[in-house]
Design a protein around this nucleic acid. Structure first.
Lengths: 152, 152
DNA sequence: AATAGATCGTCACACTTGCAACTAATATCG
DNA sequence: CGATATTAGTTGCAAGTGTGACGATCTATT
């Protein structure tokens, strides 16, 4: 049985997955961003750069961008800002002198350690409100998306 | 048993929910945005405004912003752009002359109907790659997040 | 060894965004 | 009624962003 008319059904945004995904991500991001913004005056690209370096140790700007999906100019500016703060040191590579090896300074690592702890707390708090069931579903749903994008 | 050192464990970004949520949302958004950008030259705020009006019929700019979590200046500019395209008409409210009642023109509705159809196809295609299981988990996970944010 | 092509990071530029201030209109309260 | 506060929507400005071009360096081809 077909509909009488062939009108396109209106799109219901509250049910539309890309829209829901975005709203949820933005809501989470903003709450978390307000923490490192208020506490350290960090921007989002700066936090991401700090976190990526904190996790991996020594990286090039390109590698940071690749891992965290940031445009290279964004990384470049974040690196500059973190260097100005003396949280990060750059060192030309001897083998390939186009490359800069980036690394957190002790001060940078200290800030990173603090923020990493705060990040864990934030995540734990967030997940605790979803219930064990909701948490598992969210993680599984994200994993499914990641698996798809990973092979695309 | 405690760890020997009390070092904060480094944050593993690939496991960090806010980060994963953001990357997934951005990946989905960019793919979808490239469709309406290439096909109509629409920006993201313009598409959101079009979609919200398409779904609800007549709305004020403030209502659009509230529903789609957009800053009022963003809405204001998107409305202006859509009006310039003759996809949208504004009409001062007689009861409250601060308010503008916004509505899609026939041309705007036509574009909306086309885009709504494309949006459904996009969503269907996306979900088909997650498997029925992944789809359900994703939806349930989002619902859990929405329930939490809804009551916050 | 020389040329062409790719890669790394930066910069100038135009565009987008959010904040604060603004105008116009309505609502609230003494 | 009148003063003040609030709301709707726009705009100026400063900050953030991506694009494209660039110099410097490395790689590949001959």
């Amino acid at each position: 049985m077909e509909n009488e008319t062939t009108e396109t059904p209106p799109l219901v945004l509250e049910d539309f997955i890309p829209y829901r995904l975005n709203k949820a991500a933005e809501a989470v991001s903003q709450r978390f961003a307000s923490i490192y913004r208020e506490r350290y005056g960090l921007t989002r690209p700066e936090w991401r750069t700090l976190a990526t370096l904190g996790q991996f140790g020594v990286l090039t700007a390109t590698a940071i961008g690749a891992h965290s999906s940031m445009h290279k100019t964004k990384v470049s500016r974040a690196v500059f800002a973190l260097q100005k703060r003396r949280w990060l040191s750059r060192k030309r590579d001897d083998m390939d002198r186009r490359i800069e090896n980036l690394e957190l300074t002790p001060a940078g690592r200290k800030a990173y350690n603090e923020l990493a702890k705060v990040a864990y707390q934030f995540e734990t708090e967030l997940l605790s409100h979803l219930g064990k069931r909701g948490e598992n579903e969210l993680k599984a749903g994200l994993a499914a998306l990641e698996a798809y994008f990973g092979r695309t």
